[in-house]
């Protein structure tokens, strides 16, 4: 295998890992604050893609406003992030918060999250039908090639966006008071209101961050692979969750690194072996990793708090 193919696969893996990383961030944020595995998160990714599709169609398909396509793209991303945040926060308000208020065992909340995901999938199926839809081409694809290595403008954009999003998130968590509050909740939720902090508002903010990252991933994904279908969030959501666990769930660096790790393993396995073996080998590697370090790469064992 020569270096050209290696670099080509490296670039592909960076893009593929970007999607996992962005979705894994949402899992890890919610887990860090609530110790809740939000199994509806993969479907939030799907909702983000569909809402992006909706906004893209509305913005391009009407005769009233004519905007340059790159502006339409940016508006699509931003509007989808905002609208998807509302969906994520609605789940928290309608499904998770009432259970939390009653002091329900966390297991029931996780099951509720699973059901919320199924409701989103099947709700979508009921409203839009099973047929696939194709995302409009908002960014004209340009392919640059350097000595046999090719990279598209979309690929560059996906990778750069993932890194920027991670840095912004890291800044929020590390430097702002609301970020400190998020970390404080994961350590001792009872003491947080003693600081004059409304815990529910911090939780809502956490869902806003997580859902908007999923929406960002969703719109980028359908920009790169322009097919939408109601179950598109299921597999990728599960995989991103595993990436978050491998990275050390609750740690946002872990989610980011875990996402890329999974991307790299998948792409390189597919490059060397028949692609039908991809997931088998990828998950076997992750299983070995977890059995060596059960808390994940960046994780630490935490005492269970009730």
């Amino acid at each position: 295998m020569d270096s050209q193919i290696l670099i080509q696969n490296f670039l592909n893996a960076l893009q593929w890992g970007s999607f996992y990383a962005l979705i894994a961030l949402g899992y890890t944020l919610v887990y860090g604050v609530l110790l809740l595995i939000n199994f509806a998160h993969g479907d939030i990714f799907m909702v983000g893609a569909y809402l992006g599709f909706f906004f893209a169609i509305v913005l391009t398909g009407n005769s009233l406003i004519h905007l340059p396509l790159w502006i339409v793209f940016i508006m699509t991303v931003v509007l989808s992030m905002i609208a998807t945040s509302f969906v994520g926060v609605t789940l928290e308000r309608v499904a998770y918060r009432p259970l939390r208020r009653k002091g329900t065992n966390r297991l029931y909340v996780v099951i509720t999250a699973l059901m919320c995901g199924l409701i989103l999938e099947n709700g979508n199926l009921a409203v839009f039908g099973a047929s696939r839809r194709s995302f409009p081409e908002l960014i004209e694809k340009t392919i640059y090639s350097f000595g046999g290595i090719t990279i598209s403008n979309i690929k560059i954009m996906v990778i750069v966006t993932a890194f920027v999003a991670f840095i912004v998130l890291e800044m929020i968590i590390r430097k702002t008071r609301i970020g400190m509050a998020m970390r404080a909740i994961s350590y001792d939720r009872v003491a947080v209101p003693l600081m004059g902090i409304p815990v529910d508002r911090i939780i809502v903010f956490t869902f806003v961050l997580g859902s908007s990252m999923a929406a960002l991933a969703g719109v980028l994904f359908v920009t790169a692979y322009p097919v939408l279908e109601p179950y598109m969030g299921a597999t990728i959501g599960w995989k991103a969750f595993i990436a978050a666990v491998v990275g050390g769930i609750g740690e946002i660096r872990g989610a980011f690194v875990g996402g890329f790790l999974l991307g790299f393993i998948e792409i390189f396995v597919a490059a060397f072996f028949p692609s039908t073996l991809r997931d088998l080998i990828a998950f076997s590697v992750l299983l070995v990793l977890l059995s060596v370090k059960p808390t994940g790469l960046f994780g630490f064992s935490r005492s269970t708090k009730i």
């Binding site: 008071r177 609301i178 400190m180 350590y187 001792d188 009872v190 003491a191």
Partner: peptide, 27 residues
């Protein structure tokens, strides 16, 4: 009104300075 709770309940995963800063959240 502020409470210094039994057992102190400081945020161990935050720095000393962050523990003080987080208390200014609403100010």
């Amino acid at each position: 009104i502020a409470l210094v709770p039994e057992g102190r309940r400081i945020f161990g995963n935050l720095t000393v300075f962050e523990n003080l800063t987080i208390a200014t959240y609403a100010r």
